[in-house]
Amino acid sequence: MNQVFDIKRFTLLARLKFSLHKNALGLSIAGYYALLFIIGFFIAYAHRNDASASFEGFHYVCMGLMMILGGVVLAGRAFQDMNTSEKSNFQIMTPASNLEKLILPLISTSIGWLLFSYISYVIFALLFNGIWSAAFGIHFEFFAGTEMFKIEYFGDQVLGFFVMHSVYLLGSAAFKKYPIVKTILTQFIINWGMMLVALLGIIVFFGSIEDFGNKMDSMDKFILEQNLELLEQNARTIFRILGFLLMAALYTTAYYKLREREV
């Protein structure tokens, strides 16, 4: 049997984890939908007998919130199983490889969660629209959520989600207690540090922030005048490559952090 990855062992681990977390996860999702349902009641009641009323916008916001925020929160809690010595014992001693113990939460809280939340939200929206339509006489369009895929630079949004996901998954692997709060604080400190470095760079290379602003304005003007679309595209490609590399680096670091965790 392969000691790094084995599909049978991976399935057993998934079954065990699902069994351990199904109640908490089920309650959270049911709570979220119940909350939306109650909010929906007030909105629908306010628009009763209004044939032009629409919940499309509401659904897109709620579905997006569920998919993105839910995924990030789940990633931040991915190794909640290791937040005490007793739970760490159980997690580390479970006969699966370190890679399997990383990949399972990685996939389930990202791709798995995106798929699940998308499908479940579409079903929820169908029920939601049907019930409030029957109760208040509102006419609804069928909500399939597919418009979401048509937003500009959808791929970049997905990449952005995965970068955020990798940050919180690493936070979960690195911090034993309060991983989400500590990850946010760490991000805040890093951002401030980077901003300070950037400010120092501006002062060293451009003299002052005002000079830097002027130089940037003239560069924008130049790009606009020369119609350098290619430059913009290149910048986007570089952004994508950097995003991908950052994501890969963070997931890899999470793997090593997990491997080095002690009780």
């Binding site: 049997m1 000691q3 084995d6 062992r9 014992n89 580390i92 001693m93 479970t94 006969p95 699966a96 490889s97 370190n98 491997r259």
Partner: peptide, 12 residues
């Protein structure tokens, strides 16, 4: 190394 082979042969 915490290999599955080892972990499935010990219990704590």
């Amino acid at each position: 190394k915490r290999l599955p082979l080892t972990l499935q042969d010990m219990y704590l």
